[in-house]
Design a protein around this nucleic acid. Structure first.
Lengths: 196, 196, 196, 196
DNA sequence: TATGAATGAGCGTTCATTCAT
DNA sequence: TATGAATGAACGCTCATTCAT
């Protein structure tokens, strides 16, 4: 891996890395994440295979670099939205992100796998997303008509938990008769709304 | 796969299956679930590779037979306990199960993956566990000093969600300064207790 | 690697192995030993790569199976020849073998590398050749007009030593002005002939 | 490669080269010749990879610089010894050198490969050793009670051949019941002593 | 001279799963 | 049912060497 010291990261290095990610993105756009093949990426990036593994520990590391920023962009979009006035609004705001995360079972798995987990040393983009989710959602929820007896951060954590739950159930034989979105609505109502 | 029909399942069949599970358990006890290899299992069971797949649809099916009952035994233990009087009691009751589920990242993943998920057709032992979790926890929670404004089933679902959340965070570099158990306590307090 | 127990080696196993060796031989005949590529062998044998490595530990192991028998065939040819009446006759008898061994630097290296060496456990075909060389040459030399003060086996060993020496020198910048064959003749004269 | 012309070689050049060789020697002392990696050498020398190849044509060139002088030092030691009075004395004199050459299979291979061989253009230190071996051994043998019917150079060549043979057999599973030293003694007796 | 990212081409691996016997 | 050789399709690796800066 190109030296990650304090010193100048060479321009060439940056360029090669960009070429690889770009090429990978093209593949993904055409055939989905699961279909991504290292061989194809390097071929289409015009780069040697060895170079790929000099930039990314393994295929998974590249995957993170593709999926992390994507999630980030959804968070960006959410951030620009006005604070939701009710659960329904929140659900609607979250749906694009949820849609992406459940677009491919493979994507969901990658996100779960990197939800922070993996290596304690290298905090990848996906783990960072998780923190940012709290930062984005927290203030947002604080502005809405939601529970005030607990901190916005905790409120946000709970939303995350129920998101995962709903998505997991979406992949689950036992509950799929109910739409993920409905499920999510029920969860969040119970979690966010002040008790009567 | 040996017929699971009306007729008596042959003794030999049962014996082979038992041998395989036993051998697998030994491997797991020595090296963990992740390290389990079909090759090693059949070798140690003194059986051919093909035989393995005559008994288990795939490796995952075996995994379920190992992990499912384990989870079940934890649920059994929980069931015998008196209904918890508060969140603390609930957390204590859940800890053994949590301990098992976080003993190996791989186990956590398998359970997550099978939280019903996997095969739409065959509902394996782990998916059943999840239902059972609801069945065990639901009535239990209904008896405690917890929220009454939502159904016990939903309450149980939420407990599940926060369990997963706490465990995921446990694996997450960003939050590990706080103990999983403390985290869980906070979550469940916010989820289960009637708002002041 | 297919079980190497006492029991029946399946016919299929034998057939696959034969297919691989045959395909490899074709490649070698066309492009030389050095040019042999595993990929090409399996492709032309119509076999999966995994199968190749189930039959041969690595490419080198296959190489041994190709070169060993070849050397053997040269020894066979030598064996059918009438015992040489003088050094010249011996040199002539040996030349085909020498020619093969120096036909490709790569071949010489493989033979040297396996001249018994490599692994103490697995005595490959090439190491066996070395013994056989003694067995073929010994009796042969005993019949000629050569030194009688030392055993035929020792005599044969020496011939082997000088063969290697001559071949090594053939690849050597310092001596290549003299033909390998001449060099060999000088060595063997000094070694084999009774001193005046 | 730093100019080896008439002009004074810059101090920096010399220093870098020395650093590289020193670093390489440390690596070898710790892990053996076979384990030497250019990467490790440059890292431990605090120099860039490219710099290595500015000083040494290739890795092999470095290897020669490490092994050649080592062999030379053994030859030096032999040279200071009085001419051997018999085969036993010769064997004893040669043993340290033999010991080094068989210390690692890899070393044996490098020496064999460079016994002059390798590059027709550049006669490296090892090839020179071989010539020197002849120069050291020749006069030495001429002084002993050995065969006089052939030239000292040829006598020396033969000693080399039998050395190689004994060392090769040492690596050979088929003959290792007999000690290399005993083998060598037998060979040299047969080669050097006048026939009764 | 020095730098270090990039090269490259093939090897060996992986290992659950299949299928002909 | 049992067998075990064969499959397959990437992946990851190796690591000396080159070359533009």
């Amino acid at each position: 891996m190109p030296k990650t010291g304090m010193v100048k990261v060479q321009t060439r290095t940056l360029k090669t890395r960009a070429k690889l990610i770009e090429a990978a993105q093209v593949v993904v756009d055409e055939a989905g994440y699961e279909a991504l093949r290292v061989e194809q990426v390097v071929a289409s990036a015009g780069v040697a295979k060895g170079t790929f593994f000099a930039h990314f520990k393994d295929k998974d590391a590249l995957m993170e670099q593709l999926i992390g920023p994507k999630v980030d962009s959804y968070l960006d979009a959410i951030e620009t939205l006005p604070a939701p006035k009710d659960v329904e609004g929140l659900v609607q705001a979250l749906m694009p992100l949820v849609g992406f995360m459940t677009s491919e079972r493979y994507v969901f798995d990658v996100i779960l796998r990197h939800s922070g987990a993996a290596a304690k040393e290298t905090i990848g983009p996906i783990a960072q997303n998780f923190q940012r989710t709290g930062m984005v959602l927290g203030p947002w929820l604080a502005m809405g008509p939601f529970r005030k007896d607990i901190s916005p951060e905790l409120l946000a954590d709970g939303v995350g938990a129920f998101l995962i739950q709903a998505m997991a159930l979406h992949y689950c034989a036992l509950h799929n008769e109910m739409l993920m979105q409905d499920q999510l609505r029920i969860y969040l109502n119970a979690w966010l709304m002040p008790q009567a």
